[in-house]
Write a protein that binds this DNA or RNA. Structure first.
Lengths: 192, 192
DNA sequence: CGATTCTTTGAAAACAGTCAATCTGTGTGG
DNA sequence: CCACACAGATTGACTGTTTTCAAAGAATCG
């Protein structure tokens, strides 16, 4: 399980064997079965989580019980709740597994230690945060500018692999449209 | 003009006089008149910008000429285009002044130098990025989950000062609704 | 298999968008 | 300082998209 994380890191930066050992020493390995929660709203989130295998979703539930998907995380993506982690307050998010999955958890203090001890790791982390922010901006642009069809086309372009990997109604939820609308949109798209 | 930036910093971290001098030495001071561009799409963005006075908007223009506002930046907020800055590619965004404004620009190399030389400054910057990311996530949630009325109420709560400071049709654009819809929503909200 | 979950389809209703006209306020130039 | 022009906001009538509700098919999983 650690090998995947190691490969992910080594594809971006160069570290010594000792540094990998240091990282490994603070990793918490966790297997999740499909539908299993990694985080439930109301709980405080205390980690950074790296997905080695499988796929998770991060979502919020509104007062009517409606689910709104904030994001998907497949292999070699990070997940968690930055807000709860930063503030120490209970999370508004839920994270659960869409498939049997394997994740690595690193507690906040351990993570900060790694960033201090290994400057290159700190750079890598910073880079992730930057890219996540940019991705968020682009998603906001899509959400406020596009029609349902444009949103779906944009999703397929950006996440071709997720398009057929996660249930359709979850893509709808991610895009902020109803499953019925997405079904009709797909029919339109298929025509052309 | 620098005093405002200095106060902003000193409210969060403690620096020596020399460190402030170092920061000041790389600041580029710029005054903008209302409607003046700070960035035009197609240009490459090369700075981090701190707003000392006034208010700017950051927006994208679609193929039909429609403007979609990505964000507002008033005093003591940052602005710019992280994507263009990171990739070196031409920006898809426009930034212009909604009021006569004053901003401080710091080039990327200078900014990185400051982060290296002054660890506390680096922490501050990291904190900003984290908070920006969290704010983005919450905006995404609003965009995919809320009705027009809920979006507007949420905006008023989060940015009470901007509500009457920026033109209404720009708030509409920020929320991803038409000016007409916002006008009607406001009428409803006023009733209650 | 049987049961559940997911997707599709249809019809009606609600919501938001479009177009056009009017009203309001602001600021600028004469 | 006034008048006029202009940008912004409101309103109405209409259109179109998306949602809602309900039911029927598909697909998936234990």
């Amino acid at each position: 399980m650690f090998e995947i994380f190691q490969k992910y890191i080594s594809d971006q930066i160069t570290l010594s064997a000792e540094e990998y050992e240091l990282i490994k020493s603070v990793c918490i390995f966790k297997k999740l079965r499909k539908r299993q929660y990694l985080l439930q709203d109301g709980d405080v989130w205390k980690y950074n989580a790296f997905v080695c295998k499988g796929c998770l979703r991060n979502y919020r539930v509104d007062e009517n019980g409606g689910e709104h998907i904030m994001g998907f995380s497949k292999e070699c993506w990070w997940t968690g709740d930055r807000e709860s982690l930063l503030t120490g307050k209970p999370s508004a998010n839920n994270i659960d597994a869409l498939e049997d999955s394997e994740v690595i958890l690193i507690t906040k203090p351990s993570f900060e230690m790694l960033c201090e001890q290994i400057p290159a790791f700190n750079d890598l982390v910073n880079n992730i945060l930057n890219k996540s922010f940019i991705a968020s901006q682009n998603r906001i642009h899509s959400a406020i500018s596009f029609t349902a069809e444009q949103k779906y086309r944009n999703f397929m372009e950006k996440y071709p692999d997720l398009t057929y990997r996660v249930p359709q109604h979850m893509i709808a939820s991610f895009l902020g449209i109803t499953p019925e609308t997405l079904s009709r949109v797909r029919k339109e798209v298929a025509k052309k």
